[in-house]
Design a protein around this nucleic acid. Sequence first.
DNA 1: TATTTGTCAAGAATTATTCTAATCTTTTTC
DNA 2: GAAAAAGATTAGAATAATTCTTGACAAATA
Lengths: 140, 140
Amino acid sequence: MKNMQERIERLKEKGIVLTIQRLAVLEFLVENCTHPTVDDIYKSLKEKYPTISQATIYSCLELLRDAGEIQELSIHRDKACFDPNLRMHHHFFCKQCEKIFDVNIECPVSMQGWFDGNKVEEVQAYLYGVCEECRKKEGG
Amino acid sequence: MKNMQERIERLKEKGIVLTIQRLAVLEFLVENCTHPTVDDIYKSLKEKYPTISQATIYSCLELLRDAGEIQELSIHRDKACFDPNLRMHHHFFCKQCEKIFDVNIECPVSMQGWFDGNKVEEVQAYLYGVCEECRKKEGG
DNA sequence: TATTTGTCAAGAATTATTCTAATCTTTTTC
DNA sequence: GAAAAAGATTAGAATAATTCTTGACAAATA
C-alpha cells in the first residue's frame, strides 16, 4: 500500500474521479517499480479485470501523468514506460538484459530550473550501457 | 561543406560504401542542425532525388548512427530525430515552438563512464520547458 | 426521477517503423 | 571488358504503438 493513501488524497484534491481502473493502474505502478510498458500493465490488469481495454490504460496513464503522479519515460523510442517515483532521478538502461534502473545522481542540469534564458520544467536523463550483473555473466 | 570531408574519410576507413543516398542524408544533417525527423529528411531529399524511398532514409540513418557519425534522439516518443553533432551535449525541447536546441552543459553523470558497477556507454539528457523566445512572446 | 457530466470499452484509424522481394549498382573475378 | 556476386535501393506490404471515435454506462446534480 505504501504511499497510495497520499496519492489518492492528492488526486482527490485535484478533483480527479478515482475509478476502479484508474486506481488499478496507479496501484500496479506503485507495486511494480520495474518501469512497465503500457502492454505490461494491460496484460497484468486484464487478469484481474478481464473487460478492461488498452485504450483505458492509455487514458489512465495520460491522466496520472498530467496530474504529476507518474513519469513517462522515453528511454526506448518504440514504447513508453512509466515510473511512479516522483523524486528527481534519472534512469539507466541495460542494453543486454533491457532492465531499467533508477539512478540517484544529483546533476546540476536538473537542479537549475533555467538554462540560458530558457525555462526548464522537466529533465529526463537516460544512461545506456551494460549493467553490473550482465557484465559479471559475460566475464565468467 | 564544413567537416564533411573528415566524415567521409572516417566512413571510408570503416569500409562503408558512400552511395549518393548516404552522402545526401549525411550532408542534409550536417547542413540542417535543427534535429530533423525521418520525415523531414525524406521530404527534403525527395525534392532533389525524387526516387529516394523512406526505407532508404531509415537504412542510411541506421548505418550512420551505428558508424558513430550521428546521434539518434528520443526527445519525442513518437518520432526519432537526428543530430550530426558528435561532441557530448544535451538537448532542450521547447514545448511551445517544438524546437530543439543543443545544450552545452557539462554534467558529471555524462563524464564518468560508470555508475555503481554499471558501465555507461551513452548518455542522453533531455530538458523540457519553454524557450526564451516563446517566453518573450508570451510576456508581451 | 430526469438531466448532465464524465468515464469506459471496443474496435477502427493513424502513424512511425520494419520487412520483403524485386531491381539496380557496384565490385570482384575471370 | 563481360559475367557473376555482393551489396544497396525501391516500393509497397506488414507490423506495432498509439490515438480517435462512438455508443454505452455510471456518478453527480438538480
